[in-house]
Design a protein around this nucleic acid. Structure first.
Length: 461
RNA sequence: GUAGAUGUAGCUCAGCUGGUUAGAGCAUCGGUUUGUGGUACCGAGGGUCGAGGGUUCGAGCCCCUUCAUUUACCCCA
């Protein structure tokens, strides 16, 4: 049989893992720097935990896990199962008789579930980070995978906007260290609610926001067309126009919003929040990222209620969203714990990787297949034991060392070192054993000299 | 789900309007008198041309079906 892996999933070889771990390490270090503690949750959740949290589209993309051993069901249950299955063949339908588990779709909802289940042992505000894969039953394409890693940082149990500011500071530091030019767009769901309220279309808020969200993709006419298709009235669309045309600096935009939303309480609250963030950007000393208010930013996830974030690379031709996040005022409410507001962001490592690859941003020492510093090569079995012993001594000094495991021609051993980009080869023959030395070759320079153990460790440090 | 593109050696591809034993580069393995790689030279192995059917004297090439990969729409990290 031909080996293969499911569509949209990938293997990661040593060279890729080296680079992936480089990203993970930077994010992890920064999460800890800002006081987030790690947790992990299972790959599978009860399906009821996940459904209804991601919008209609999102629910369709949840990977369902078929209940096991259904063939062992009793006959009368089998009859019911057949009926359920027939329904599922006709329409989108969830039956716990068929599937009671599903693969996690993101890390935020499982986190909310975790918080509710561990409410009494947590110290609030609770700050956690989580680095795990998620699965989406999407059709894969460039930058879109069915299995990918999210790196989430969330604070729950505090509605202070200081949390948003700290998240921005953390994004700034992380993207700066990764050397990715980034624009972070932000908006506030309250603004969007306010707009819908002003337009007298509160129940169509999702349709409106989703349409506006596509502005830079399909243009103004496209947006208007989509709004009409969704049944938004022409007068409402006319009203909306100044917002679709909105441009200029962050403060210019706020000015326009101020007039537009002057009769909406929730809208005014949104402006207040946005102003707080804007006026404090200087305080947190943003160095690297561009922060931009974008009222067309909507984000599909249903649970956001306040600030929303999205980041894209600001260079190159491949600029998918590499970070998303926002505030959710009542995600835990669904699981029976009211009044816990949270805010968080999610770094998409796989896309960050793709962007960094395109922009050639991985440092040279990360861009290699092996971390071995020295390969010990030898001529015959007579020197083998000596090499093993020497390797042990070098490793105790913290030097990454390999011994070529087979007795082989020098050529072969050097080819091995070359392919693995090992920078030094130590040749051991009878001369070296007699002299208690090692013939140390610098693979990059092509030079070599006979050195003692002291010099060896000095050079390889 | 809808639409397009592509499936030929391990990888990247060539293969003219259908015409003999299907090619190249890279990779792999071996060698260039054996204490030295990355550059050179010589040689070798490796292909049911995605799969199935059809048209034809003859199909990698044309037609149908099917599968896979990929891009776009939708939505998203």
């Amino acid at each position: 049989m031909k080996p293969s892996i499911p569509r949209g999933t990938r293997d990661f070889g040593p060279a890729e893992m080296q680079k992936r771990q480089y990203i993970f390490n930077i994010l992890k270090t920064n999460f800890q720097l800002f006081g987030y503690a790690p947790i992990e949750t299972p790959s599978m959740e009860n399906i009821t935990t996940l459904t209804g949290k991601y919008g209609e589209e999102g629910d369709q993309l949840i990977y369902k896990v078929l209940n096991s051993r259904i063939h062992e069901s009793k006959d009368d249950k089998k009859e019911i199962l057949k009926k359920e299955f027939n329904i599922a063949l006709e329409k989108s339908y969830n039956s716990e008789l068929l599937t009671e588990k599903a693969l996690r779709y993101d890390l935020t909802v499982p986190f909310a579930r975790y918080v509710v289940m561990n409410h009494h042992s947590l110290t609030y505000p609770f700050k956690r980070y989580q680095i795990q894969p998620v699965w989406r039953a999407d059709k894969p394409q460039k930058g879109r995978y069915r299995e990918f890693y999210q790196c989430d940082a969330d604070v729950i149990g505090s509605d202070s906007l200081v949390n948003e500011l700290e998240l921005l500071a953390m994004m700034d530091k992380s993207f700066s260290e990764l050397h990715i030019p980034v624009v972070v767009k932000f908006n506030n769901r309250k603004i969007l609610s306010g707009i819908a309220e002003i337009l007298n279309a509160s129940d169509q808020i999702i349709d409106i926001t989703v349409a506006i969200d596509k502005l830079d993709k399909i243009g103004k006419e496209g947006v208007v067309k989509e709004l009409l298709e969704k049944g938004i009235s022409e007068t409402a669309i006319k009203q909306l126009e100044p917002l679709i045309d909105l441009s200029g600096s962050n403060n210019d935009k706020v000015t326009v919003l101020n007039t537009f939303l002057s009769n909406s309480e929730i809208g005014k609250k949104g402006i207040e929040e946005i102003n707080f963030l804007l006026s404090n950007l200087k305080t947190i000393n943003i160095q690297h990222i561009k922060v931009e208010l974008d009222i067309t930013l909507a984000r599909g996830l249903n649970y956001y209620t306040g600030t929303i974030f999205e980041a894209k690379a600001n260079a190159g031709t491949f600029t998918p969203s590499i970070l998303g996040g926002g505030r959710y005022d009542d995600l835990t409410g669904i699981f029976g714990l009211k009044g816990l507001s949270g805010v968080g962001i999610s770094f998409g490592v796989d896309r960050i990787y793709d962007v960094m690859e395109e922009l050639n941003l991985f440092p040279p020492d990360v861009n290699k297949v092996s971390t071995t510093k020295l390969l010990l090569a030898y001529f015959s079995e007579a020197e083998q034991a000596h090499c093993i012993g020497l390797a042990a001594k070098l490793r105790s000094k913290g030097i990454n060392t390999e011994v070529y495991p087979d007795v082989a021609k020098m050529k072969k051993q050097f080819e091995y070192a070359d392919k693995k980009q090992i920078p030094f080869v130590g040749v051991i023959g009878s001369n070296e054993i007699t002299n208690n030395t090692i013939m140390l070759k610098n693979m990059l320079a092509g030079t070599q000299e006979e050195v003692g153990f002291e010099t060896l460790t000095e050079v390889l440090k």
